[in-house]
Computed example of a mutant assay.
Amino acid sequence: MEFDFAEEQPKLLMLLYGLIAFVLLIGGLLLLLDAVPSWFARRREAQLIAASANGAPLPRRPKQRESMFAFFFLLPTVLLLLVGLVVPAVRTTLLSFMDGSSTNWVGLRNYTWMFAEDSIVRVLINTLVWVLLVPLVATAFGLLYAIIVDKAKFESVAKSLIFMPMAISFVGAAIIWKFVYAYRGEGEEQIGLLNQIVVSLGGEPKQWLLESPLNTVLLIVIMVWIQAGFAMVVLSAAIKAIPADIVEAARLDGVSPWQMFWQITLPSIKPAMIVVVVTISIATLKVFDIVRTGTNGNYDTSVIANEMYNQSFRYGQNGQGSALAVVLFVLVIPLVIYQIRNLRQQREG
């Protein structure tokens, strides 16, 4: 199909005008946010100078003015949240009750389809396995790293190396590990690290990413490798924040290192561990890139985010894809609420 510029010119002009209007709107808001507070600040300064010159008490700032300041600063954020989050969420929820063409209302059929289709049930089970394993294993490794590296000779270098995977995108990490899992036929030179180790020990090379459920575990390893650095940094900071007098008192009482860990260190860093587990759980629920790059969701490795993409963009089933998106959203909400409540309790405590 050839592109007819003359036919599409009105649409392109409309798009261009829309972009210009959007840029002008954002620019105007930014100028307004800069000009209005400056005007109020100058006016406030003049009032203070006049009051001090006359010996009168300083005027108090009205609450209405403070609310107006807050409104001007929050307005762009609220608009962006409405456009980028609230409106798409409402639209996706409505589409989840429609058929693939988004024209006919089908009620809860898309939701019952999830639990009636064996392949989708497998997707839900895979997602559950990810959420159970990744946060716990990544936090455990992060805690182990934090304890081992704490006050070591080359602590900063070691932490930098452990945290480095966090700087790599999920796609990049998946590509790196695909080379680790790479397979070549028996008798050929293996380029995959894992198969090379197996061959060196006298075993036979395997196509690791094709064997279920082992392939799901191997993909989970990639996520753990990335998130362990994040857990290590947060938990290491929490360990260093333990009051020194508590540690000294425990040592004077003759506490062993094992007792020190279970009775002093672990209870002291419990809030930080909760934050780490919840944060990694949210990231794991939304995992897409690793599965997409590693196996494309084949061989029983797909998860909710990947299947949502497949249903919506590969198979043209907007209703089913939207239903998966809603389920994913519902699963994330309790974790977010718990995280907010936990942080609020820490701040108040």
Score class of each variant (00 low, 15 high):
Phe3Gly: 09
Phe3Glu: 07
Asp4Thr: 01
Glu8His: 14
Glu8Thr: 14
Leu13Ala: 12
Met14Ser: 15
Leu15Lys: 08
Tyr17Cys: 12
Val23Ser: 00
Leu24Pro: 09
Ile26Pro: 05
Ile26Gln: 12
Gly28His: 11
Ala35Asp: 05
Ala35His: 08
Val36Gly: 03
Ser38Lys: 12
Trp39Tyr: 00
Gln47Glu: 15
Ile49Arg: 09
Asn54Asp: 12
Gly55Ala: 04
Pro57Ser: 14
Arg61Lys: 11
Pro62Gln: 04
Pro62Cys: 06
Arg65Trp: 08
Phe69Asn: 03
Phe72Asp: 03
Thr77Ala: 08
Thr77Phe: 05
Leu79Phe: 13
Val86Cys: 06
Phe97Asn: 04
Phe97Trp: 06
Phe97Lys: 02
Asp99Ser: 07
Asp99Gly: 09
Asp99Arg: 03
Ser101Asn: 11
Ser102Gly: 14
Asn104Met: 11
Asn110Leu: 04
Trp113Gly: 03
Trp113Asp: 12
Ser119Phe: 05
Ile120Arg: 04
Val123Glu: 02
Val123Asp: 01
Val123Asn: 02
Asn126Gly: 05
Thr127Ala: 02
Leu128His: 02
Trp130Gly: 01
Leu132Thr: 07
Leu133Phe: 10
Leu136Lys: 01
Ala146Asp: 10
Ala152Pro: 03
Phe154Arg: 15
Glu155Trp: 05
Leu161Thr: 04
Pro165His: 08
Ala167Glu: 00
Ser169Ile: 02
Trp177Gly: 01
Lys178Gly: 06
Phe179Gln: 10
Arg184Trp: 10
Gly185Pro: 06
Glu186Arg: 07
Glu188Pro: 07
Glu189Gly: 09
Leu193Gly: 14
Leu194Cys: 01
Ile197Trp: 12
Val198Gln: 05
Val199Gly: 12
Ser200Asp: 11
Leu201Ile: 02
Leu201Cys: 06
Leu201Tyr: 04
Trp208Phe: 11
Leu214Cys: 00
Leu214His: 02
Ile220Asn: 02
Ile222Lys: 02
Val224Asp: 00
Val224Trp: 02
Trp225Cys: 03
Val234Leu: 12
Leu235Cys: 01
Ser236Gln: 14
Ala238Phe: 05
Ala238Tyr: 06
Ile239Lys: 06
Ile246Met: 14
Leu252Val: 15
Asp253Gly: 03
Phe261Gln: 04
Trp262Glu: 01
Trp262Leu: 09
Met273Leu: 06
Val275Thr: 13
Val276Pro: 13
Val278Glu: 06
Ala283Met: 15
Thr284Cys: 07
Thr284His: 08
Lys286Tyr: 10
Lys286Thr: 15
Val287Cys: 13
Phe288Tyr: 13
Val291Gly: 09
Arg292Val: 09
Thr293Trp: 07
Thr293Gly: 07
Gly297Asp: 07
Asn298Asp: 07
Thr301His: 03
Thr301Leu: 02
Thr301Asn: 03
Ile304Val: 08
Ala305Cys: 08
Met308Leu: 12
Ser312Thr: 04
Arg314Thr: 00
Arg314Ser: 04
Tyr315Ala: 13
Tyr315Phe: 15
Gly316Val: 03
Gln317Ile: 01
Gly321Asp: 07
Ser322His: 00
Val326Lys: 09
Leu328Phe: 08
Leu328His: 09
Leu331Asp: 10
Ile333Val: 15
Pro334Val: 01
Leu335Pro: 00
Val336Ala: 15
Ile337Thr: 00
Ile340Tyr: 04
Arg344Gly: 06
